[in-house]
Design a protein around this nucleic acid. Sequence first.
DNA 1: TCTATATTTAACCGTTTGGTTAAACTAAAT
DNA 2: ATTTAGTTTAACCAAACGGTTAAATATAGA
Lengths: 214, 214
Amino acid sequence: MQIPEKDKHTEGIIFEAATRVFIEKGMDGARMQEIADRAGINKALLHYYFRSKERLFSAVFEKIAGQMFSKFAPVMDENLSFEEKIRFFFREHMEILKNNPGLPGFILNEINRNPDRMANLIKGYDVKSIWLHLQKLHGAEFEKYGITKENFPQLITSVVSLSVFPFAAKAIFSVILENMGCHFDDYIEQRKTFAAGFVISALQSGNHDMPRYS
Amino acid sequence: MQIPEKDKHTEGIIFEAATRVFIEKGMDGARMQEIADRAGINKALLHYYFRSKERLFSAVFEKIAGQMFSKFAPVMDENLSFEEKIRFFFREHMEILKNNPGLPGFILNEINRNPDRMANLIKGYDVKSIWLHLQKLHGAEFEKYGITKENFPQLITSVVSLSVFPFAAKAIFSVILENMGCHFDDYIEQRKTFAAGFVISALQSGNHDMPRYS
DNA sequence: TCTATATTTAACCGTTTGGTTAAACTAAAT
DNA sequence: ATTTAGTTTAACCAAACGGTTAAATATAGA
C-alpha cells in the first residue's frame, strides 16, 4: 500500500482549502471547483476523498464548530476565581477569534440555514450542568455577586455576546471604528480587558434587574 | 393608465415574498422560483417588476438595512437622561428584533458575503458625530460614568452586542436555553431590563479597564 | 371601442453546478 | 513484475438556475 501519510497530506490539503472557501462563501456560495483549484487538485480527486459537497461541508462544519465550542469548556476548569475566569475567558477566547475572525459568521450563518444541525452539536454542552459545576466551585462569589439560577443564562449569554459579536459584525464594526480613527485589531485588543472589566463591574454593583419568570 | 395602487400592490406582494425568502435563505440560497411561488405569481412577472435577482435583492437589503439602522438614531434624540436612553434603547430595539428575529442574521450574512456594500450603508451613521452629539447632551453624566472618547466605541459596541447577538445566535441560544427550562421569548423579555441594568451597573461602578491606544 | 398596462402561460436558452466515468499515468509495496 | 491506491485528464451528464420570449388574456382608462 501507499504511505497513508500522503493520503492524510492530500486529504488535509483538500480539507484546509474547503475550510477556507466555506468560511468565505458559506455552503450555498461555495463552489466545488474553487475548492479543487485552491487545493491545487482536480474535481475528480475531490469526490474521490469526499463523496459529495454535503459530506465535505459537514466534515468542515463539525470540526470548526467543535473547535469553537471546545474552547468554552476548559476555561471553566482552570483553578481560578470566578472573576479571574471571566478575565481569562475574554483574553483567551478573543485571541482565538482574533486569529480566526471568520468563524463566528460561518457558524451563525450555517445554523441559521440549517437549525437542525444544532441539536447534534449542542448535546454535551448543557448549561444546567455548567451552572451546577460553577455554583459548586464559586458559591460564595455567586452569592456576593447576586448570581442566581434565574439570571445565570442572562449572564453567560452576555459574556458570549460581548466577545463574539464584534467578530460576527466585523465588516460593520471595522468601518464604523475607522470613522473614529480606531483600527479593528486595536479595538479587539482593548476589548479583552474592557469587556472583562465591564462584566465584573456590573456584577460588583449587583443590582441586576430581573423580572420574575412568567 | 391602470391604478398605480394595483402596481404597488403586486410589487409589494413580490417584495414581501422576496424579503421573507432572502431572510430565510440568504442571497445565494434563495431561488427566484420560490419567491414567485410565495408571491403567488410567476417568474415572468417577477422579472417584469424587478429586472434581476441582484436588483431585487439590493432593494430588499437596502430597505431592511435602512430600517435596522434607522432605529438606532431616533433613540438618541429623545428627551431623556443617558441612563434612561439606555433603558429605552434595549426596550424598543429588542422589541423590534423580537418581531423580526431574522434580521440580524440576514444583515450579518450579507455584509460578510459582500463587505463593500457596507461603505454605502454606513455613511450617515458616523460614530464620531454621535459621540459629539451625546457628549453635548450628557456631558455631566459622561464625566460621572467615566465615559471618554477612548472608551465610547467599546461602550456602544457593547450595548449593540448585548441586544443584537442573542437574535443573531437565536438558533443556538434557544436550544441551550431550553435545556435550562427557559423559552427564548421569555429570555428576550427578561433581557430588555437585564441588559439595561447590566450596562448601567457597569457604568456606575466606573472602573473601566482601558489600556492606552498603541 | 381602442389602447396601454398587468398578468398568465409555457416553452425555451445558455450557463453553471454537483457529480460521474473511463482511460491513462505514477509510484510505492509486495 | 505485479498489484494497489493516488492522481490526472478530459469529456460527459442531468438537473437547477437566472433570465428571455412571444403569444394570449384580462382590465381599466381614454
